[in-house]
Design a protein around this nucleic acid. Structure first.
Lengths: 168, 168
DNA sequence: TATTGTTATACTCTATAACTATA
DNA sequence: TATAGTTATAGAGTATAACAATA
């Protein structure tokens, strides 16, 4: 993030250019990325870091991180899902989901209900306060999304969603 | 990854649809993402995971990961950089770069040379075998990039690079 | 035998703070 | 005082393996 924001404020860089040979100083702005420039993965990674940081900051007051938001949203839209189903759908390890749900359950946003049809599994539901909270989270997430739009432009954001639709 | 690949093999899903009420089963394919669909961050994150996994697999034989590749590439293109300069340019914590360089130095790909102008800092250089190795890594990374192109299409990849150029 | 949720371990990565040697 | 590199620690996140209860 630091580097990308710094990059934005490009200036003529009137700094020292004295010939100090092999050990010459580089301005941050003039360090070449070479082959990295042609790699989609590099740009995507930097963008993803920016976007997650904005999400975390925008939902900072309610203390909800991207993964928690995705879990709450999917449970909210599909009440009764098992942990395995949520884990598979979101590409989260089931072992990791256990801890995520422990935290969300402690915060009384989610509840695990023992399934009657398969006593091994839990049916996941939002609590009543969980439903209310998710409504607020969605409002804040939409605000974050407007930051993204402001950053890359409305049309670019839409094009991006189209290009990457296959990965959701 | 699992979910996204599973998503690709969409089928009519002729499975049980019996009315088992609140605890009804969901096929992985029919679990709705709700608000997540409209979030660029979700798609970008899933794509970034796919792309890194392909990179790691494609460069698996030479045991080079994306961050290591980015460090080697930047040092190769800007010999004599300090650790701070590399860290800032790539958005890596300087504490983390120490370990990355320890590993690359042990593998004789990089060397830290004491700067004569500022005895606190190290000038980073590729070793001769490091130069040779990087050439091979770049060839493999280009192969990875062709996988990306095959996955999302040549024009979409180029458009993506345009849209995200500001984040590099 | 296989699956669900759980626990545990290891490794990567991020975020800090503090220390040293220099500047 | 501030900076470059280092060390250390804590918290996410990922990747595995193994276990108990249940299918």
């Amino acid at each position: 993030m630091t580097a990308s924001t710094a990059r934005a404020e490009r200036r003529p860089s009137p700094r020292k250019r004295a010939g100090n040979g092999a050990a010459r100083q580089h301005d941050a702005d003039e360090i070449g990325l070479d082959a990295l420039v042609g790699h989609a993965g590099y740009a995507v990674r930097r963008f993803q870091i920016w976007i997650f940081q904005d999400f975390i900051k925008t939902l900072g007051d309610v203390d909800i991180r991207p993964t928690q938001y995705s879990v709450l949203t999917v449970i909210g839209a599909n009440p009764g899902l098992s942990q395995m189903a949520v884990a598979k759908r979101l590409g989260i390890e089931r072992a990791r989901l256990v801890h995520l749900l422990d935290s969300l359950e402690q915060r009384k946003l989610v509840k695990r209900v023992k399934s009657k049809t398969d006593r091994r599994s839990h049916a996941l539901h939002l609590t009543a306060p969980g439903e209310t909270a998710l409504t607020k989270f969605k409002r804040l997430a939409a605000e974050h999304e407007r930051h993204v739009e402001a950053k890359i432009g409305k049309e670019n954001r839409e094009r991006l969603l189209q290009i990457l639709a296959g990965f959701t």
